[in-house]
Amino acid sequence: MLLLAVGDSVHASTLQPARALRICLGLLYLLCAALAAPRELAAQETPYFVTYSHHLEEPGNLEIELNSVYGVQHAGNDYIAPWVEFEYGAKAWWTTEFYLDWQGTFNDSALFTGFRWENRFRPLMREHWINPVLYVEYENTTAADKTMIEVVGFDNQADYAVPNSQAQMDHQHELETKLILSSDYKGWNISENFIAEKNLGHDPWEFGYAVGASRPLRLAATSDYCNFCRENFLLGGEVYGGLGTSWNFTRTGTSQYAAPVVAWQLPSGVTFRVSPGFGLNSNSHPFILRWSVSYEIDRFAHRVRSLFR
């Protein structure tokens, strides 16, 4: 699948149903393999797609996450933008993450749109009422990127109507920073993110925000190993959008979204998430649907080192 998609980046081709089916079957195979794995591992995660909390990846663990977003365009030519995340707990206070992004637009083409490298640091070593996390990310993408991992500035759904052949010529090297504030209270997680993004070539700083709240359906664990227990499900919601630029800090003319989120954490270490999102104004996509499958590999570095012994 990876090679297929890399090939797309070199020779962008029309998104065909047969290819989409092959990708789906590949994902299904991966999923079945993960479900069948006799393991006991569960990450402590929040179900958000856009909002970050202060919970970092456990040190030494690697989480591989396949995500996708389906976006509805006002003027047609909807799209699917998948991305892969490799999230690694470098330290208990530092998580590093690498992304590869693709997209396929109906009646247009499918192509690789770039990569991102993010790092999250917890400056305070203890839990507080509000826990800050500092976030720094470098993005090397093209204007054809449609993953919408964050919304900043005056991002507008009409931007996504630009044909891929034209959009992919516009390379973007961006620095993105976030201040993540997050709290846990009586089983609830409440997180607020303030986003500042800068195109390193030009343009002013662009700002955005994301706010989320979530809670497991059951707070205490049961003594049984079960896939469908209420304790394995998290429900929540997030609201996110742009806040203009350093030249014009405003919500007017920006796109805004609200999205319920659901996560299902299996004891095998697999987590499914889904989130239908709704645009709150005419600048936003009327509807977006995000989904993901993630799998956590514990003691990843130890396993890699053991291969060379």
Binding site: Q44, E45, T46, S53, H54, H55, L56, E58, P59, G89, K91, A92, W93, R122, M125, R126, E127, N131, D184, K186, G187, N189, P216, L219, A220, A221
Partner: peptide
Amino acid sequence: LRNGNLWRGMPSWSGLPEQRRWQ
């Protein structure tokens, strides 16, 4: 369990609900 010992590698388990930490 809630605070961990981040500097020494023990993660914080504040993401687990309090009930599960007591369990």
